[in-house]
């Protein structure tokens, strides 16, 4: 452990739902660390617990067991208002369905998180406009979601996620509602922002091509992490390739191998803790992303 504090640290985290008096274990002891600047793909079949894990990592939900620390704060020790503030300051969300407010301009959508941070209106607009410029929508400030294409809407959502300068960007199937060309462009934007600003990017995806581009891949199944591996180095720069079948996702990388410099945040060259999570023993065993697992209650959008 040579770097600063991790962005997110989960130790033996579990999440059990009570449904009609029946306990359903969506997560069963997940341990992982996200460092600032990480680029992580979270893969796994429907019902494997990826969504539940994303909600926990984003502070939208609290674990029923284990310890979850986001931005240095123990989630289970925070009341709902404090957790909201923590989300506002630390996390940016990008959703598959964009989740933009209708009847609201792009710039106002982007400024929304700043409203809850108490930033004055003029500053909000300036910062939101600047952020829209960074995602290539400087000319679309006052357009409403229904006046924009899907790709543009997702860019607005990305700008909204980053306007607060969070340490972690959580993207849940960010290209799932987009055609392949637009999806690739959005993905490149996310990767560029990850590289430029050092925000950690954690992305849930079904798409093996997308997953293959990540610097690190976490595979889930039945509520546990079955593989946590650093991808081949310099994956950012490679075009999407089709040759990465599922075996590639399952190859455990040596935990001591340093991360590629391009994907690491400043001052965090070591993959030590990430590697430690990968070495928790839940290795490829029965991992088969295509095989349907037990459906947790929340389903997967």
């Amino acid at each position: 452990m040579t770097g600063g504090p991790p962005a997110i640290e989960a130790v033996d985290v579990s999440r059990t739902y009570q449904l009609d008096g029946v306990s359903v274990e969506a997560l069963r002891g997940v341990t992982l660390v996200v460092q600032p600047g990480d680029y992580v793909a979270l893969v796994g079949p429907s019902g494997s617990g990826k969504s539940t894990l994303m909600h926990l990592l984003g502070g939208l939900d609290r674990p029923t067991g284990g310890r979850l620390v986001i931005g240095g704060r123990d989630v289970n020790a925070l009341a709902p208002p404090e957790l909201a503030t923590l989300r506002n300051e630390t996390i940016g969300f990008v959703f598959q369905a964009f989740h933009l407010l209708p009847r609201t301009s792009a710039v106002e959508n982007v400024a929304l998180p700043l409203v809850y941070r108490g930033v004055p209106a003029r500053q909000r607009r300036a910062r939101a406009a600047a952020m829209l410029g960074r995602v290539g929508l400087g000319h679309r400030l006052d357009h409403r979601p229904n006046q924009m294409s899907g790709g543009e809407q997702q860019r607005v959502a990305i700008a909204r996620a980053l306007v607060t300068e969070p340490t972690v960007l959580l993207a849940d199937e960010p290209t799932g509602n987009l055609d392949s060309v637009t999806g690739a462009a959005v993905l490149e934007l996310l990767e560029r922002l990850n590289a430029e600003s050092g925000v950690a990017l954690v992305m849930v995806t079904h798409d093996q091509e997308v997953a293959a581009r990540a610097q690190r891949r976490i595979t889930m199944r039945d509520g546990v992490v079955v593989a946590d591996s650093d991808a081949p180095p310099a994956s950012h720069d490679r075009p999407p390739s089709v040759d990465h079948g599922r075996p590639a996702t399952l190859v455990p990388a040596p935990s001591a191998e340093p991360r590629s410099a391009s994907g690491s945040g400043p001052g965090h060259p070591s993959g030590g803790s990430g590697g430690a999570a990968g070495a928790t023993g839940r290795l490829p065993r029965e991992a088969d992303p295509g095989q349907p697992g037990a459906e947790p209650p929340e389903g997967v959008a």
Partner: peptide, 16 residues
């Protein structure tokens, strides 16, 4: 409800 969820995700407290 979706709007409420989004607002909460970006940092709206229950009181907001």
């Amino acid at each position: 409800t979706r709007e409420i969820g989004l607002r909460k995700a970006v940092g709206a407290r229950p009181r907001d």
